[in-house]
Design a protein around this nucleic acid. Sequence first.
DNA 1: ATAAAAGTCTATCAAATGACTAGACAATAA
DNA 2: TTATTGTCTAGTCATTTGATAGACTTTTAT
Lengths: 138, 138
Amino acid sequence: MLSQKAKYALQALGLLTARYEKGPVLISEIADQKKIPIKFLENILLELKHADILESYRGRTGGYALKVHPKSVKLSQIIRIVNGPIAMLSCVSLNFYKACDNCTEQICKINPVMAEARDAVLKILDRRTLADIRDEEF
Amino acid sequence: MLSQKAKYALQALGLLTARYEKGPVLISEIADQKKIPIKFLENILLELKHADILESYRGRTGGYALKVHPKSVKLSQIIRIVNGPIAMLSCVSLNFYKACDNCTEQICKINPVMAEARDAVLKILDRRTLADIRDEEF
DNA sequence: ATAAAAGTCTATCAAATGACTAGACAATAA
DNA sequence: TTATTGTCTAGTCATTTGATAGACTTTTAT
């Protein structure tokens, strides 16, 4: 399951995508609309900024905005930033690989199944972008 | 990511599948072979017994054995027992559904993507059974 | 200038979860 | 009848997660 943080991140990005190229949005506005604790949201947005997904402006007319085109950001990328590995086992992770420490056997039958599962999810999450979770406008 | 517990469960089941219809296997033997802390493994096997996947025998010739045919146990089933939901969001879970509490919008764009992702994993995990992760024999 | 408004950053906290352990108990076969 | 095996409840300990506090910096409107 995705963490609450990851869910919040996706919700915030849905809003920011709808506002793409329409000027920065206040953290407080996002927090209000999406019912996210504001200080928690601050951390999340900052992390996404550090990952070059968002850009921010300070001062009176400040706020957050998408830094790149919505279609250029895969959902898999977002999830990796705010939630970590997508694979079910680290020994099968493409971006966070780590060998199993108790896997004595050369031939593990679990590994290939989990690799299949990983590919199946990635087939979805690599094809879907921020544009796909963009908030409807009113 | 699957918990350590889930990983241990799958490893233990790989061994028990190889021993299917060959009499009960000691917890201590499984723990040794798979390098799993024995008391932790006890809990896991007990849980799988309560879920009717395993059966156990006490006393001198005791131990654990698969209760049903390996091909009749889907990996998705095991994961749900020892790890919980397979879906990335509870609002998209088939077996552990729970509505989002901060989802004010009628139309959530995240939900359908996560449903797709869930279906993609399940396509693998519903088709694979214990027979697919059965330990090789020597 | 300067005050108000915005994001930045570090630190902290409580609660939940995860991984594991202890130990008394119950059943069974030799 | 006793050694061996599983049963079960409870507890510990470390880590992660979700959330908060508050001082600080930057920016803009006046």
